[in-house]
Design a protein around this nucleic acid. Sequence first.
DNA 1: GGGTCGCGGACAGATTCGGTCCGCGATGAG
DNA 2: CTCATCGCGGACCGAATCTGTCCGCGACCC
Lengths: 318, 318
Amino acid sequence: MVQTSARLLKVLSLLQSRRFWAGGDLARELGVTERSVRRDVDRLRSLGYPVHAAGGVGGGYQLGAGKELPPLPLEDEEAVAVAVGLRVAASGPVKGLEEAAVRALGKLEQVLPKRLRRRVNALQAVSVRIGDTAPRVDAEALAVIANACRDEEVLRFDYSSREGTASARSVEPYRLVHTSYRWYLLAYDLDREAWRTFRVDRIGPGPRSGRSFKPRPLPSEDVAAYVSQAVSTEAYRFRARVTVQAPASVVSERLSGVAGRIEELDAERCLVHAGGDSLEALAFYFAWLGFEFEVHEPRELIEHLLRLSERLARAAQR
Amino acid sequence: MVQTSARLLKVLSLLQSRRFWAGGDLARELGVTERSVRRDVDRLRSLGYPVHAAGGVGGGYQLGAGKELPPLPLEDEEAVAVAVGLRVAASGPVKGLEEAAVRALGKLEQVLPKRLRRRVNALQAVSVRIGDTAPRVDAEALAVIANACRDEEVLRFDYSSREGTASARSVEPYRLVHTSYRWYLLAYDLDREAWRTFRVDRIGPGPRSGRSFKPRPLPSEDVAAYVSQAVSTEAYRFRARVTVQAPASVVSERLSGVAGRIEELDAERCLVHAGGDSLEALAFYFAWLGFEFEVHEPRELIEHLLRLSERLARAAQR
DNA sequence: GGGTCGCGGACAGATTCGGTCCGCGATGAG
DNA sequence: CTCATCGCGGACCGAATCTGTCCGCGACCC
């Protein structure tokens, strides 16, 4: 009967909504005998979910941490929180998690009721962004693209090239790669009949996935290497060279997340090469460090720092 | 048989792992006839999960967005991403979502296999924090506390008072409230036999939940109001008064997340009252605005800005 | 010691399940 | 246009399963 399976799902969900459930309560909640509850619990156990039980007064069933993760039943609010959290995670505050976050986001968005999707989008707007060396990537677009890759569906979108000219693209998406704080899409461009690497932040709003395609062999075994090579010519608007009066290890910890590399000069100083598209972001990263530093280039950054310094000095006057 | 229910769960999970599944493929994957697959799909539909189907060549089944959210089957990596994302969300980058995020986190942590928990904790460390008016709250502690509230379990922890004296507490936890960038726990202190409001960031590491208790009536109907009144005497280390040369609406948008309130002076200026425990954070927030501003108090902030301004000026020299 | 609560065997009847067989209709490629 | 593909669902039947009932056991806590 469908009833049995539905009940099983319900038990699973009940057990996750409250730590302890007495057999009798569960039975009442589910509208079956206690014996059936015991059987359901057994079934869950045989499915690999560790349900602990405590005897005596105040005892009950409790879902524990097992080897595998049970499917997570979420309330509306919680789902929204998960979606928002994943969008943050996908935009990269924590290294090495972006791809997984995007995959999870794809799964979630696929089944997210419309009313919740609206809430997520509304909340998304107010997210606080730090420094922002990374251009803002639309997390929903990211999810759409990730799903298109997974499902092998042709993707259409508008793309603005580095020079700012826009063009409509129609591609077979293969991989979404996250490197040095940017998202890239490795895809086969159907109109140009060639492999291309797209910067996701340059993809226009609302990419649409369409009919499915038969995947062709990738241009390289090592996709990450291929992409990073393809984009190595990619330049930031500004490249900064800055000497910081602090040990390289300290700086690298505090600058985690900035695109760039750090050279140790001596025990107390290091040279930071950082790339960014915004002077504000670059200035803040270094100011935020809290150490003395010296900018060698670019000139624009030096000028920006001077202006900022003057503004702060004015703020402190009275 | 357990088989049927297990299969149903598996179908649900398969349908979320790939967009399109042909009936034959599903049948092979599950080890049953195609007819049975159709029946399973029917069952899912009757459980409220909208499974769309497309006929013809290249057709297949597809899980759509329904009224309710199906339980989310997560891979290991994805679960870690969700946990990290939720921890970020719980620490409050997006308004009004913190409580839900903590609830979801509680659910997740309850069933998170140990190996994944370690990963989450490891990753948590490197999370980038902005400005940080909010003291760092241990997300795992938050989850433990939330679960203790939900499960009505006595909670023990070390608490350092405002003056810095530590004491061991044993309380009945009732509500976790998030206001103005801080977490508070409303609880009944069993030793002092009185209601108390605890700042979660002052709770020592590893709060432990114990035996369950019978809840007593709350001291007030409106818990949020009660707590906010109870903590109204709570002072920040620094209180700043700053005039900003920008419309109040713009400022309030960019300062979202800072504890404080904004008074409109005229169309082009507003007065911001902000509280914070760190001069760096306060300076950062106002500098980050990008507008001209003037600090009226505190003196420390003015001095800090001067020092910062000089440091930036030095950085720009060469 | 007694009450509470989880455990699980046994049994019987009702229900359901899954495989098989089959014809229908929609879709999309050639 | 035609054909192959693929989802749909009715019918049938034997096997498997589920549920409620009854009951004794053991653990735990007051």
